[in-house]
Design a protein around this nucleic acid. Structure first.
Length: 497
RNA sequence: GGUCGGUUCGUCUAGGGGUCUAGGACACCGCCCUUUCACGGCGGCGACACGGGUUCAAAUCCCGUACCGACUACCA
């Protein structure tokens, strides 16, 4: 039997970082053993699920490169089957109708209500004391026929325990006494999560369920449903959670866009880099290699490398520099700088296009220049956005000057206001404008002025690129070209700022 | 409250009885290189939650405590 795994998000928000990692691990696991990777959208919570969210999740997955091997399953389409399964269990006596009126919602938070109730029931209430649990079939049928609303609950045995071997957490056992007669079907006829998941996983022939650790205790309930349905449960593996700094839950409400995958795409992250970063959160190849291609991740991935403790996604919302995890940023920079040029070129092109800096010549007569320049400037970039921001001066005459760069490299040396235009004049007669020739001219000029090379070079950098950082200035002159260099050295724009 | 799980540098992690004066990465700091720099090179700072056991030997095994987390719903 071939291995089949699924990623099953509920569309109540965008694809967040924890879900993205769950998708990644499922994907890596499937590819590692030549299995099938499936996607199921768990949209049974009609009140919270939105089409917009589904699209956002799909976009996130597409960006990361995890295309499902078969058609996407929408859980809401299977409600009829889930209902039928509940009815079947009812007919077989494995479930019963509970005529207890639905509890009224309180104004307290849901979590608190649950904890309160649990405390109150402590040592008082048994999990099996539902008055309708042992109602005779005749009585139950009669009440139902009379139109009394009811929910269908699974009849959990009095004694015994469920147990399974978790792929990450090891043996997990739970006494039946700890598990209530869970509701399968609501009184309004809607199936509940645990039933829906089990039914769908059976129908999709899922063999391995890899999901967040928050489902670890749910697993016991689900195993009970598998058993009632007469099916063998699949293998389970639970993943540690990804938490916010301080060890708190990472949530959309308090952490905002930082948890959304689309944020990273929109901030110039390379999917390959983010994937790589995500893989190392909660999993380790147990080697010292950290930069890994997808193929390397696939072949190194095993459940044994997954941790049992939660990981923290580290960031500082109050800092512009650390708006997201340092390591994610570093990883992306590493990819931007060292990826094979041919692989990153399409991404650079897309970035320039969206910034309206792309010119068709870059693919024709200026192809060589473009590739050489892109390769030159990426050495100090962190994200794709840098190509259109810090790198803007290479592709456009309309670029901004960084005030700090002007102050530090230009205005601090007032002589430069006349020197730079003079240097431009030295460039004018040059027939070959390349590294060695430029160096000779600039050095000669520097000596004549009795100043330091750095003063001229840094001043020129600010004038030519608007920023204080970049590659070797000789290479910059070459990349900007003779004509544009001359124009920018002569320009007084920066001086008037 | 109960059940279950977790706890190695600030963060991601290696290590699973002796090789640990605990290794790597990010961040931070310093030095070097350099025309600048957020490049590169070298170095530094920095952790086994706590308390008991077991053992010749414990970061590693056992117990307890603390802290964190999940679940405890006619949410998913």
């Amino acid at each position: 039997m071939t291995t089949r795994v699924r990623f099953a998000p509920s569309p109540t928000g965008y694809l967040h970082i924890g879900s993205a990692r769950t998708a990644l691990f499922n994907y890596l696991y499937a590819r590692h053993i030549g299995g099938t990777f499936l996607l199921r959208i768990e949209d049974t919570d009609l009140a919270r699920s939105t089409e917009e969210s589904t699209q956002s999740i799909l976009q996130g997955l597409e960006w990361l490169g995890f295309a499902p091997d078969e058609e996407i399953v929408f859980q809401s389409n299977n409600a009829g089957k889930h209902r039928a399964a509940a009815l079947k269990l009812l007919a077989e006596g494995k479930a019963y109708r509970d005529f207890t009126p639905k509890a009224e919602p309180t104004d307290k938070s849901i979590k608190e209500t649950i904890a309160d109730r649990a405390r109150r029931n402590q040592g008082v209430k048994s999990m099996r004391d539902n008055p309708f649990r042992d109602l005779s079939r005749e009585e139950s049928d009669a009440k139902a026929a009379a139109g009394e609303p009811f929910a269908i609950r699974l009849k959990v045995a009095e004694t015994g325990k469920t147990s399974f071997e978790d792929g990450v957490y090891g043996l997990s056992e739970r006494d039946y006494a700890e598990i209530e007669d869970l509701v399968l079907l609501r009184s309004d006829g809607h199936p509940l999560y645990n039933l829906a998941v089990v039914c769908d996983d059976i129908e999709m022939e899922i063999t391995d369920i890899i999901r967040g650790q928050d489902h670890l205790t749910n697993t016991h309930k689900q195993i009970l449903i598998y058993e009632a349905l007469g099916k063998t449960p699949p293998r389970f593996a639970h993943l540690p959670l990804i938490l916010a700094p301080g060890g708190k839950k990472l949530s959309k409400r308090i952490h905002g866009e930082i948890v959304s995958m689309t944020t990273y795409r929109d901030h110039g992250f390379l999917a390959a880099a983010f994937r790589n970063f995500l893989a190392l959160l909660g999993w380790s190849p147990k080697t010292e290699q950290e930069i890994m291609t997808l193929d390397e991740l696939v072949s190194a991935f095993t459940l044994e490398g997954i941790h049992r403790n939660n990981a923290i996604f580290n960031f500082d919302a109050t800092s512009a520099k650390r708006w997201t995890d340092d390591k994610a940023l570093w990883m992306n920079a590493e990819y931007v700088r060292t990826m094979p040029l041919a692989e990153i070129l399409p991404f650079i092109k897309a970035e320039l296009k969206s910034a309206k800096l792309w010119r068709e010549e870059y693919e024709e007569e200026d192809k060589e220049w473009f590739e050489k320049t892109a390769d030159l400037i990426r050495g100090r970039f962190f994200t794709l956005k840098d190509f259109s921001a810090q790198g803007r001066a290479y592709f456009s005459e309309d670029f901004d000057f960084d005030p700090a760069a002007i102050a530090k490299n230009l205005k601090k040396f007032p002589d430069l206001q006349t020197w730079l235009p003079e240097l431009a004049e030295r460039f004018e007669p040059m027939t070959s404008f390349t590294h060695d020739e430029i160096e000779a001219v600039v050095k000669q000029f520097t000596e004549e002025k009795g100043t330091k090379l750095g003063v001229i070079m840094n001043g020129a950098r600010a004038a030519l690129t608007g920023v204080a950082v970049g590659p070797s200035m000789l290479a910059v002159f070459e990349a900007i070209g003779k004509e544009r260099s001359i124009l920018r050295l002569k320009s007084q724009v920066a001086w008037n700022m």
